[in-house]
Write a protein that binds this DNA or RNA. Structure first.
Length: 905
RNA sequence: GCGGAUGUGGCGAAAUUGGUAGACGCACUAGACUUAGGAUCUAGCGCCGCGAGGCAUGGGGGUUCGAGUCCCUCCAUCCGCACCA
């Protein structure tokens, strides 16, 4: 009886669906396990073979935990708001909701073919009004909260202490100035090509992360989330999480905490205070000038009249530069002198004030005290403009002659008045004392993290549920009016002024509100990240109409035990959702401070491209090994017509019409293709579709092979070449159960000791491996086990039955079929994972490797009960060892029980 | 520049606390069986050497009875961040 995977898989997928096999059990007496995947954005091109890698791992883990007696929550959903569907709508006029639904349908089919144990009753889609109702609701919670610095947590805005004697307008402004979501006129990353504002996180190297379009800076009215209030907690919260160190570090670096001091200098004429941030107050005596960012508000006030023109020209030039250009031009420093002077509050010295774009308005105070002797940037600037470079810290307290670069390290003070000869580490706290004594500042902590620009001028996103009243107030839409849904629009294009397409829909924007009268709706929508900030909470209770999730369910299921997804979300999604979660925690809506206890980053699956080599100006193709003999150009060839790097010539001729008459120069009768690892993409013809693999080999083979490919965390190229090995394993496994005629051929006789040992060892290994998130080694373990059982001719019913259970997380379809054939009426998912027994793993005799002076020499067998730590050299009386020792008395015998004996002579 | 990760046969990889390096699989070689296959089975397969044996985990050094694993140093590749004061 052959292993008919196609019918078996179809049959069981049907069975699971009909019997609700994967319905989440909420029996709260059992321990819970919440296994979460990063849900996909349903793109138009469907899944390729790399996408399900993490899902397969989490599915194995979920199924394993279920067999171990846990209630498992293993949901799936779709991050269905986003740019590609909107771009497509702009091009075709097709409503993004339709495109999205079609894509989701395709994704679900593909996912179902792989045999995941997702509970589809828990599915969420972020663009579903029943879902984004609660995204809007959470937005309003943030809008109606403020951050209490003293208690270090968010609180309802009605509890905010409002200063007395404020006019109504001032009161309003005060409250708005404390909300966790607020409006601000700020410099934003405007992307003309996408027609929207992007978060700093979405801009890399001056271009948009998606699409690589140029981004410029421009002031606009924006909705902003006060994530900076949580900077400290977002750092400290990382400590208790089982996350990869690299991700924790990325988040820490992103938040960018630095200890230092704020120091206020005074401008000489206007007496304007200029506050700078520095991490090195100990270099206060080395300050030889100040620098303001071009956007700094004081630039205009303090610059002298004769310098105004050149300064304005400089500022104008700087503002035209995009971040990209600023970064590109980083080689030489530019700047202008304002003509103004400042007084060093500690030394009393008078120093020049300059403007330069190497100082960023967005970090610290937008002004720096320049210490050219201790900071490389200041050094370069001072060199270029002939400003004084004063050494205040050197390794030995003596001036370095011929200073070619700044000395940023620690050392001994010099040129610092009364403090010469101090160690810089000791002077650091003293310098802060001096600054405080001068009433010019204090020690502070500064963060790189900036508040999160939380809106996009786009159609396909959650509408922001805010109303602008006629008298200029900004008020929240009533909760009972949520969800606020998207109106139909004629055009999905954003307007040139940067307003969203919603702004054109008059009847949607201008409404007569029962509570606030004539109001104008906010026309911005939320950014792509909004929906994914909290989806893991909605999974607990997606049907709930009264709350985003049931508090009891939250208490039971949270936190997420294992969250598997790509490392590309290290700082974006994972920081935002932690922020929202902490706000919800402060407001009492969730039971944990952190959402994701354990995080695992699966590696990327790269493509493995194949190449053919066309001899120039011909339709002849030369095999890889012979290409040097000809003048040839490489050409991508579809990996689906290549097997083990050998080209299928017929298929190649049929691939494209222009290749129908292709000729080949073969080596050893074969056409061998070249290979290169690249990103998987259509244009490189290296996309491998899981549907095709499933058709040829089955979902069980796909699942096991994806795991077998290598460690989950590691990035690796997809290579279909090795898949036969895994497929062969499943065939062998299948054949263990049947005789030649296809009848079940099992015995109830006592299995051999050897068979018991092999199988129980497999149970132990597989269990231990899964628990340490190693999914590739169990596959090997199963292979060893099955090969061994075949050698031993073992067909013991009990052992094989248990093996079916152990294999079921990896290969659920074949396991169900065999389980059923073994006479069980219930699904194998209801079974218990087989417990290994120590007694079968023990050996009677242990074959010890003996090494002499660290070199492996021979082996010797001991009864297991002799294996003690205090084994004496006498045991080496064995002839074999004596021969190696040449009769010498060993000096020392080192015995590692169950491992090795090392003899030192 | 700063930070992180990785480096083991022809290839993907194993080696959980330092203890027989290369398990398992692919590819390859030889053989068996044939209803001639993209099937199945058996054996071989790190390198040098006829052999005993020697050499091998990116290079060099160290600790140890013993190092892929720990320490120092250099090199290569990949991935983040990047005028953050």
């Amino acid at each position: 009886m052959t292993y008919d995977f196609q019918n078996i898989e179809k049959k069981w997928q049907q069975y699971w669906k009909e019997n609700n096999t994967y319905k989440t059990n909420t029996d709260t007496s059992k321990p819970k396990f919440y296994s979460l995947d990063m849900f996909p954005y349903p793109s138009g091109s469907g899944l390729h073979v790399g996408h399900p890698l993490g899902y397969i791992a989490s599915d194995i883990l979920s199924r394993f935990k279920k067999l171990k007696g846990f209630n498992v929550l293993h949901p799936m959903g779709f991050d269905s708001f986003g740019l590609p569907a909107e771009q497509y709508a702009i091009q075709t006029g097709k409503h993004p909701a339709l495109t999205t639904q079609e894509n989701i349908k395709r994704y679900k089919e593909q996912l179902k073919n792989i045999g995941f144990s997702f509970d589809w009753d828990k599915e969420v889609q972020t663009s579903d009004p029943n879902y984004f109702k609660w995204t809007q609701w959470i937005f309003l919670k943030l809008f109606n909260s403020f951050f209490d610095e003293e208690q270090n947590k968010a609180r309802p805005i009605d509890e905010l202490d409002i200063p007395k004697n404020l006019s109504d307008q001032e009161k309003e402004a005060f409250i708005n100035g404390h909300r966790l979501v607020y409006q601000d006129e700020i410099q934003v990353n405007w992307c003309p090509a996408l027609g929207t504002v992007l978060a700093n996180e979405e801009v890399t190297g001056g271009v948009s992360e998606r699409g690589g379009h140029p981004v410029v800076r421009r002031p606009m009215r924006q909705w902003v989330m006060r994530i900076t209030s949580y900077a400290e907690r977002l750092i400290s919260g990382l400590e208790e999480l089982d996350w990869p160190e690299s991700i924790k570090l990325s988040q820490k670096n992103w938040i960018g905490k630095s200890h230092g001091a704020e120091i206020t200098f005074q401008e000489k004429n206007s007496k304007e205070p200029i506050t700078v941030f520095t991490t090195r107050p100990d270099t206060i005596f080395g300050v030889t000038y100040l620098v303001l960012a071009p956007e700094h508000p004081l630039v205009d006030k303090i610059s002298t009249s004769e310098r105004k023109a050149s300064i304005e020209a400089y500022i104008d030039e700087a503002s035209k530069k995009s971040d990209l250009e600023r970064a590109e031009l980083d080689k030489t420093k530019t700047g202008v002198f304002t003509g103004a002077f400042a007084i060093n509050p500690v030394s009393g010295e008078e120093i020049q004030i300059w403007v330069s774009d190497y100082v960023l308005i967005s970090y610290g105070t937008g002004a720096v005290m320049a210490v050219p002797g201790g900071d490389q940037r200041d050094f370069e600037f001072a060199q270029k403009f002939n400003l004084e470079i004063r050494q205040v810290i050197t390794p030995d307290g003596k001036e370095i002659e011929e200073l070619n670069e700044a000395y940023p390290g620690q050392g001994i003070m010099l040129n610092s008045g009364a403090y010469n000869g101090w160690k810089s580490e000791d002077f650091f706290p003293k310098s802060i004392e001096l600054i405080e004594a001068a009433g010019a500042g204090k020690a502070t902590i500064n963060y790189k993290l900036r508040d999160w620009v939380f809106n996009r001028q786009r159609y396909w996103g959650e509408p922001i549920p805010i109303l602008h009243t006629e008298d200029g107030r900004v008020v929240a839409e009533d909760e009972e009016n949520l969800p606020l849904t998207l109106p139909e629009v004629e055009s999905y294009e954003p307007s040139e002024s940067g307003e969203s397409p919603l702004a054109r829909i008059e009847e949607w924007v201008n409404i007569d509100h029962p509570k606030y009268g004539k109001v104008r709706r906010e026309t911005n929508t939320m950014p792509q990240w909004a929906g994914s900030c909290w989806y893991y909470l909605r999974y607990l209770n997606p049907e709930n109409e009264n709350l985003f999730a049931d508090p009891e369910a939250i208490k039971y299921w949270m936190p997420v035990d294992v969250y598997i997804g790509g490392a590309e979300h290290a700082v974006l999604h994972l920081l935002y959702s932690r922020f929202w979660h902490k706000v919800l925690f402060d407001l009492g809506y969730v039971s944990t401070d952190e959402p994701f206890q354990r995080l695992i980053n699966q590696g990327m699956i790269q493509g493995r491209s194949n190449f053919v080599y066309r001899v120039k100006n011909t339709n002849t193709f030369v095999s890889h090994g012979l290409r040097k003999d000809h003048d040839s150009i490489p050409m991508h060839v579809d990996v689906n017509i290549v097997r083990n790097d050998e080209l299928d010539l017929e298929a190649f001729r049929n691939w494209r019409s222009d290749l129908a008459d292709a000729e080949f120069i073969l080596e050893d009768g074969k056409y061998v293709c070249g290979v290169e690892v690249e990103k998987m993409s259509k244009s490189k013809y290296n996309v491998v579709n899981p549907d095709k693999i499933i058709e040829d080999y089955g979902a069980d083979t796909l699942r096991m092979y994806e795991m077998f490919l290598g460690p989950l965390e590691q990035s690796k190229p997809w290579n279909t070449n090795g898949i036969d090995g895994v497929h062969k394993f499943l065939k062998k496994f299948w054949s263990l159960f049947f005789d030649e005629k296809g009848n079940l051929n099992l015995s109830d006789e006592e299995p051999s000791k050897e068979a018991l040992k092999v199988v129980h060892k497999t149970f132990k290994k597989v269990q231990d491996d899964i628990e340490r998130f190693s999914f590739n080694t169990p596959v090997s373990e199963f292979m060893i086990c099955v090969n061994r059982l075949r050698e031993l001719n073992c067909n013991n019913r009990d052992l094989l039955e248990k093996l079916v259970i152990a294999l079921s997380p990896f290969a659920p379809h074949i396991s169900e079929e065999l389980w059923n054939k073994l006479g069980h009426s219930e699904s194998v998912t209801k079974a218990n994972f087989p417990q290994y027994e120590e007694k079968y793993l023990q050996e009677d005799v242990f074959e010890y490797p003996i090494s002499i002076n660290g070199k492996m020499r021979t082996k010797i067998s001991f009864p297991v009960d002799m294996l003690q730590d205090d084994m004496k050299p006498e045991i080496l009386s064995n002839e074999v060892v004596q021969k190696w020792l040449e009769g010498k008395e060993p000096k020392k015998v080192i015995i590692v029980p169950k491992r090795i004996v090392n003899v030192v002579v």
